[in-house]
Write a protein that binds this DNA or RNA. Structure first.
Lengths: 219, 219
DNA sequence: TAGATTGTTAATCGATTAACAATC
DNA sequence: TAGATTGTTAATCGATTAACAATC
């Protein structure tokens, strides 16, 4: 699949899921081919960047023609590893953990949530849309036995690192961290961070960087 | 507050909330001063980058001494606009919208969730931790009358753009978009995106980029 | 074949890091 | 004062954009 062995920059990887989303839309509309120029106008990256990005992984296009929408969709899906299935657990079955557990879209894409864990006795034993909530004491054993791939951390910041350590010890290959703190994981474990409060703070910055008098122009 | 008028790069802005989080931790520990070198070892950016970042906004340090933890915390909070209050509404009171509504930390930081909106008659009229769910028909009027600052979009991708348009028309200054689609807003409205599925896909990529045989080393 | 569009190299731009004079 | 550390300029690095030869 991958043509070159050079390290792919993170900037490129962050764009891949976005390319894929637009390819899904194109496919829905029955569009079979797209040139880098057309794609550029749609997605807002330069045609040059699109071609550069894709050529990190191989020559997916055809000179004089463009890219096959279906073909490119499949290539990018494979590059991202979305042709595989992933077994996940949620640690911390509070509001956010529950929301993620109930969200069925990930499941359809091959990301299976197998179980949730919490320390709160009121939550342990309950089910969330068919997902059992276990006592957090059972986390390591469960992850080992069920060969869980991904741990989703939805606990408070005080216990996030401890949970991460347990997940890594038990053998997960990736951690999706929603806790409002930075955690450290061994280099062989992939880490992806969703920092909601940082995101909200960046929004606040941008709001204040925009002059106020341009608002409510329709009044 | 801001020393220079040059445009601040997005890379810098994304780091500011992180600086602030570490400063909160330092303050908790009773640490009063920190040099860029010490901060570097803690946060993982180079000392040079820390000094460059901060000097975009002003000379907050003191030569030969370093930075005051409390002073820097206040400066960064002010730069981000966290010394102000923000009125927010949630549009889409499904799982994710409910999780955000119930999350009290934002409220403590001055981000007040005033109301939620949905089109589902089963949800309309209910309350989420004291937050009333209104019919989505009432969105524009509510946002105008209550002078809402931020709209949080938690609807499905099909209606995300329509909701964004309504929020912008009604006069919000910022949009926090959780929908799994890109939306367009006028240039005077700040937009911050949380793309959970893109984040999960990037995690999958990184997991597959790591050789498999290094896992379960403790067994 | 001629036209179109890729794949790839070269040029530019911007962000990060290094160096050091200023100064507390 | 001497030492420490900032603020800021210069150098480097990496990512984006432009250009164009290759080729469908």
């Amino acid at each position: 699949m991958a043509k070159k062995n050079a390290k792919i920059s993170n900037a490129v990887i962050k764009r891949l899921p976005r390319y894929r989303r637009y390819l899904i839309e194109l496919r829905k509309k029955g569009i079979e081919k797209i040139s880098s120029k057309e794609f550029s106008e749609l997605i807002g990256y330069t045609a040059s960047q699109i071609r550069q990005d894709l050529n990190n992984f191989g020559g997916f296009g055809q000179q004089g023609y463009g890219y096959s929408v279906e073909g490119l969709y499949r290539e990018i899906s494979a590059i991202l590893g979305l042709d595989k299935e992933y077994k996940m657990v949620i640690v911390g079955a509070g509001n956010l953990g529950q929301a993620i557990a109930k969200y069925t879209k990930f499941h359809k894409q091959g990301f299976k949530i197998c179980a949730a864990f919490d320390i709160n006795p009121k939550l342990v034993g309950n089910q969330l849309e068919g997902i059992q909530i276990y006592d957090q004491e059972e986390l390591v054993e469960y992850v080992e036995e069920e060969e869980i791939d991904i741990g989703i951390i939805c606990v408070n910041q005080e216990s996030a690192q401890e949970v991460a350590d347990k997940l890594c010890f038990a053998g997960v290959r990736g951690i999706w961290n929603f806790a409002i703190t930075d955690i450290e994981v061994p280099s062989h474990v992939a880490l992806e961070i969703v920092q909601l409060s940082d995101s909200l703070h960046a929004l606040a910055y941008h709001m204040n960087a925009i002059p106020k008098n341009v608002h409510n122009a329709h009044k």
